[in-house]
Write a protein that binds this DNA or RNA. Structure first.
Lengths: 194, 194
DNA sequence: CATTTGTTTAACAAAAATGTTAAACACAAT
DNA sequence: ATTGTGTTTAACATTTTTGTTAAACAAATG
């Protein structure tokens, strides 16, 4: 009984993720992915049977990875300030690697129409409550905690989605872009806290 | 010589825009659009000859409409504070109608690879300079003006892109969502100015 | 080395999406 | 009413994308 595992299956998924989440080519075909992975297209069918299954698996793993990282932060027993700092770090590192991942999830959501799992809502609500308490303590400006959340995630995610456009508009090269994004971690923290 | 103009051509484009920009169905086919418009698919070929031409036209108009609104604000002779207020108003009204328009433009940009016109860069640079001057006056916190721009547009655009997810996560209905988005205009202004 | 079993490929088949044609239709002008 | 012209449709054709099959290949095991 030979168990060879050439790593091709994983390689295909990684390539798909790169194309969808890093390069933002949301309309990529199975052929595009096979080409990028340097394998015969039939292999996608061999490992995943259908395009839909592959794409679905990629989307599911995307959601899971995202949740895992975020939940780790949400669940941590840090005080709010540290938790916020950690959240910004973790989220932005993720978003820098996979700027279009959320976009993929959103368009996937708009095509089919999926449900957000209850447990996720619960966790977010807990975080909203923490935010509210922090406002009571006067550490954050009073506002609807949902606005606070929207602000926070907007500041983190959007500039990365806009990557390509920003580079052109603001005359930024790759190195400088990376620098700007790193600066943002600190900048965002200071913007939303105190 | 009969000039009938049944308005079908415009109707098809409007429908395509609704599907792409309002509903965020970035993978819609010509059939999807024809169905949504309630017309025979052949009409898309009759009026636009090919799918690519239709989509291209939609994208071009999207960019043009966006630019028109924004340029109107950028070019206005208002003092910075008023200009900023106007910008937020105009942009968010647009974004509320067509939350996914930018996303469409971005994915379009990632598929093919287009150039941002020079004139646009010039205009943005002028705005960056205005921002810098306002910082000199002490009206805005000192930072790289490009960060200021990224912050501003992130705060405006992202929550609308995240529309669907937000509604689920924060338990928001349509009416409340509209209310929150309206509140944001004021909130964003206060967040970035002074 | 032969066998077994998982991997990879090429050729073929099917389905989905797009494009073309010719004819029917509708309305205005003669 | 007839003609002309733009509009709409259905049937067909093509292209693109996806899925299947059978055979070739390669590595581990007896």
């Amino acid at each position: 009984m030979a168990q060879r595992d050439t790593g091709t299956e994983q390689h295909i998924k990684d390539t798909a993720k790169r194309i969808f989440f890093s390069e933002g080519k949301l309309h990529a075909t199975t052929q595009d992915i096979a080409d990028a992975a340097g394998v015969n297209r039939t292999l996608l069918n061999y490992y995943f049977r259908t395009r839909d299954i592959l794409f679905e698996q990629v989307a599911t793993e995307a959601r899971a990875e995202m949740s895992k990282e975020m939940d780790g932060v949400f669940a941590s027993q840090l005080e709010f300030k540290d938790k916020l700092e950690k959240l910004i770090n973790v989220f932005m590192d993720q978003a820098m690697q996979y700027p279009y991942r959320e976009m993929y999830i959103i368009t996937d959501l708009n095509r089919n129409d999926r449900q957000v799992p209850e447990e996720k809502k619960t966790r977010v609500n807990a975080f909203l409550k923490e935010i509210s308490e922090e406002m009571d303590k006067g550490k954050i400006k009073r506002m609807d905690p949902r606005h606070f959340c929207m602000n926070l995630f907007a500041l983190m995610a959007y500039p990365l989605i806009n990557n390509c456009l920003n580079k052109s508009l603001y005359n930024i090269n790759d190195a400088e872009y990376l620098q700007l994004m790193k600066e943002r971690k600190k900048l965002i923290f200071e913007m939303v806290y105190q």
